[in-house]
Amino acid sequence: MSDLNLLLKKNNFSVIWILAKRELFEFVRNKPRIITAIVQGIFFLLVFSAGFAFIGIRIQGISVDPRAFTASGIAAIMILFTGIFGGMSVLRDKMFGFMRELIVAPVNRRILMTGKTLGVALQTLIQVEIILCLGVAFGFFGYDVSLIWRLILVIPIAFLASVGIVGVGLTISTRIRDFQSFGLIQTFIVLPMFWLSGALFAFNNVPVPMQIAMMMNPFTYSVDLIRYVVLGVSFFPFWLDLIVMFAFGIIMIFLGAWSFNKMELS
């Protein structure tokens, strides 16, 4: 109840919005970052789709164009990369001192965190849509009017997926002190979640141990649902994907909020 009251205070909305805007601006104004996102997208799409072009992929008995398969997977992966490292912008704020300005303000920390999460989630949406639009431009998804609403429907799904991932980033960044730990996080969290998500490999094409590992990766379900929205086929039933995404999102956001609240600035 108190959380609801907190949200309903008018000023808190403006605070959430300005903090989200701050994250967004930082992304949009940073031209090299946008160029990188686009070029990287083109690179990923062309290389991976070329490499996997001759692999037969069948989902639920339906044959799928491998290029469309990888393109939708890469779009989903953008949520992972941008979300975790976006959530870790807390670390940057901590190191450059701006976090002090935020936490000394008469604003509840949960509000600060909500703003931050929203901003990073919006960033990831831009990234996802860039990849998908490039995929459409390359003709990987074929040309179909339904693609328009599919691309729109991806937005809430990707948003939901990124909330959990941003929570991971937030939790990590409130606990570490410097950028040196980035490599560790890349190796032990981001890359396993990436390779075992089914973004590049079809679930039914890999040996059973790997299948089990993939099923234990919460991000697998996000990839699956996004693929379901874009291509219309998925390995798991969409309701299972949704349940896992909701559960993961809620757990991670609470964990993130908890560690954000506990964070002390020395």
Binding site: F25, R29, N30, D93, F96, G97, F98, M99, R100, E101
Partner: peptide
């Protein structure tokens, strides 16, 4: 409060 260490957002 003006902190001992800088606390501006340099990207703004």
């Amino acid at each position: 409060i003006v902190f001992q260490e800088p606390s501006l957002d340099n990207e703004m």
